[in-house]
Design a binder for these strands. Structure first.
Lengths: 131, 131
DNA sequence: CTAATCCTTCCCACGACGGGAAGGTCAAGG
DNA sequence: CCTTGACCTTCCCGTCGTGGGAAGGATTAG
């Protein structure tokens, strides 16, 4: 199976597959006589795994940890859970940060009439001279 | 006022100030005989403005729009509000995306006992073979 | 035989900076 | 007057996770 077919089968672009190989997430696959990458079923499994972890927002570094744990028969579920919990914390922080931006902006936008006149509390807030 | 003092005064690093100038957010300031950038009060106002807009999560492109509106005497508050509302929408989308990751992960983490045994629903979910 | 479609490696770009090198400038103190 | 240290300048590289595209070889279908 060539890279294009692997991409088709997994929904991971050929570009990304090569990148994952380059950064060490994916084992370098067999090569055909012409130098084409040849993928096996287990490579597709790994790609699916990476794809799902990425959709859950894990960084490639975290995906790398998860892959290592996946392959490690001696892992404990506690190790996996720790990676997940840390990620959940990061997501919560990010959400809180974005939510506070939304709160401030929504408050300002409400006070902005949105008409043709130039007066705008949003700009007033941005140009305020105090901290 | 040199760049270091402007940085000190506004909390925007000298690196960032130069970068904002490079990408056209900030007017190139006067230069001293030796080629040092010399900042005036209005440059500091602009830096404060940029700083606040960045804290609200606007991209530099959006900050650029806001600065243009700020300087445009003929603007309407509706134009400003439109930029803000678009940004609020983007923030909401991002929050929803992150929240759905949190929901999935929290659900999985709850079912993972976190002990020493290797069985882990998080890994099981990631390696699932169906879509 | 040729044309289309694959594949390869390579470099460039994004956004929004930070780090650090190499070199010029300025102010204070000996 | 000279040195030292703190400042400033430009320049290039790295981040993170890709996408785009060029140049060139391989394969396949007609």
């Amino acid at each position: 199976m060539n890279i294009g077919q692997a991409a088709e089968a997994t929904g991971v672009s050929a570009k990304r597959i090569r990148y994952y190989e380059q950064v060490g997430l994916l084992e370098p696959p067999q090569r055909s006589d012409a130098g084409y990458r040849v993928y096996e079923a287990r490579d597709l499994h790994t790609l699916h795994f990476i794809q799902r972890a990425r959709r859950l927002g894990f960084s490639l570094a975290q995906v790398s940890e998860l892959l290592a744990l996946w392959h490690d028969q001696g892992r404990s579920s506690g190790q996996v859970k720790a990676v997940a919990m840390k990620h959940i914390d990061e997501l919560h922080s990010k959400i809180d940060e974005l939510q506070s931006m939304v709160d401030t902006l929504t408050h300002l936008a409400k006070r902005c009439d949105g008409g043709d006149r130039p007066d705008c509390p949003i700009l007033s807030e941005l140009q305020r001279s105090e901290s």
